[in-house]
Design a protein around this nucleic acid. Sequence first.
DNA 1: CCGTAGAAGTGAACCGGTCTAGTCCTCATT
DNA 2: AATGAGGACTAGACCGGTTCACTTCTACGG
Lengths: 342, 342
Amino acid sequence: MSAPSVRVTIKDVAAAAGVSKGAVSLAFNDKPGVSHATRERIFAAARQLGWAPNSSARSLSRQSVDTVGLAICRPARLLGLEPFYMEFISGIESVLAERDCSLLLRLVGSLEEEIGLQERWWREQQIGGSILVDFHGEDPRIGPLSRIGLPAVAVGHPSLTGGFPSVWTDDAAAVAEAVRYLAVLGHRRIAHVGGPRGLGHSAIRTTAFERTMGELGLACGPHVETGFSGEDGARATRSLLLSAERPTAILYDNDIMAVAGLGVAAEMGLSVPDDLSLLAWDDSQLCRLTHPTLSAMSHDVHGFGAQVTRVLFEVLAGHDVTSRPVATPSLVPRASTASPPS
Amino acid sequence: MSAPSVRVTIKDVAAAAGVSKGAVSLAFNDKPGVSHATRERIFAAARQLGWAPNSSARSLSRQSVDTVGLAICRPARLLGLEPFYMEFISGIESVLAERDCSLLLRLVGSLEEEIGLQERWWREQQIGGSILVDFHGEDPRIGPLSRIGLPAVAVGHPSLTGGFPSVWTDDAAAVAEAVRYLAVLGHRRIAHVGGPRGLGHSAIRTTAFERTMGELGLACGPHVETGFSGEDGARATRSLLLSAERPTAILYDNDIMAVAGLGVAAEMGLSVPDDLSLLAWDDSQLCRLTHPTLSAMSHDVHGFGAQVTRVLFEVLAGHDVTSRPVATPSLVPRASTASPPS
DNA sequence: CCGTAGAAGTGAACCGGTCTAGTCCTCATT
DNA sequence: AATGAGGACTAGACCGGTTCACTTCTACGG
């Protein structure tokens, strides 16, 4: 790839302003050592020539870069659908933009591919640090990426993220709230449609689900594992609704699956919420568009992304950072939950 | 942001392999001038030291970068929901990854902000070129960005994209197909829920809608402008269904609004497709999850993104590139369309 | 009037690669 | 034996910034 045809460098600006390169650099980096008048002259010259410091040259001599990496490992088709990530990314961006930093984004096919990618990014000094998402139990990224010293913030419960400082939502508490709410409505047969067990936060939610059911003295109803796609959600719902002990309420691990569940219920002639209650997770706008609208465990995904990024900057500044939770998802009851049929 | 604590450079590798910096560079760039044996020795040394060429230094001396820019200008909340962009991005990535290039992504609030951003990216030589999306009529980006010579590929009909080579879908033809299909089913009162007129492709679709209706001798039913959000879609649908001359079919400009329309129909006690037919656009997985499933104008968004990126690489290679269409969206009939009530 | 502190500004080294001109060597040709 | 061609490799300039050590000038205190 080529560069602008007329390349204007700091030397040209210096010449135009009648000063040395160093003075221009000082002026542009807001450092003392140039008088107000000179500074203005330099800015005027730069504006007139349309000059901006070459970012490669700058990061070369500064020995630093203002880019952070994010690799997402989910099948592409699925990603398109999950409102979560785009909103998360927009949260990240909101903080990056404040500091004139950029996001290097890559979709990868496997955790191994991600390890290779992050290592390369770091070695080539393309990124100053990374945001790591979707932790698995015994996540294979932890070893290699800590070893090379990649500064990173993890998204996920500290029990999953190895040595990386993390930012997380207390999913266990949220699941407990969801289940208790359904129980208070009178549901006894509650099912859970979760993500793959391998995925850390799915495992946490599943465990919390089972524990809470136990605490309430309810037989732990069926729990189904899925790959988070809408089709998975539909399949899971169909099989639950066809089982002998049909659940009267279903808790889903994202909102797409809950929408799919709503479709399946309609298809099978069940009325929501009269015959069946549905409770979604993540609560994107989607939950307000269906009929009936979907009750959901809601959290501020945009703010979550922003917070993660702020913590990453702390790490990059060399501060000692400890893991911290953001607000626990909270229940937003809408029209898809009610007492079970008597 | 800091760099790896132990920085190993090309000099270290050269020393370890007992050659000069130049030899290492030649080896790593697959250029002639080093024997097979030496090459192997160099690779071994690099692997052992964990060295990869510093990307800033490389692009500085090569006077080129391997990053392309993409700025998206839509409210963040909306973006999260639109499956289109994530899929489009994953298509872009699939081509970038092949060539070890990266995507610089930024969400912006206005076209003016985007102009500033693209100019800065280009002047600072952070990007080699850009992908421009969401063209407006008389798009304000065209002038400034052509003037600075930014290499770019536009997504949108050539009539919108000024001098930029473009890749587009023939939305006019697709709209005509959609309307004719509904007409063949027997619909006479067909409504259109489109995007903002300012947005180029929305205008094209709206015009095509009106023309096709005219050609079929149908009174051009109501056309509603929206901001593409689900809430907008719901509002538009509600107002259409309450009008005196209630339409029997509605064509939506994306799939989120169609899903919202489905919700509104249910809420108003109308049966889809018996009382009302709905036809969506973009056809993400979402259209298959609702009940009834949504008929849609379907196209390969992932492939679209990939194609756009390939064209950008042609531009960057200095080839003379002409605008070209990709496959026209085609109708996928599902359960939301049928003949109108007699 | 001297000494000194601080502000303003310069020149050159440096960051880590790429690339060109040039050296050295081997082998084939006349 | 002299000539030439070409392969393997090196030294050093260069890319465009940042930064540090150093100079010059002004102002102020004693």
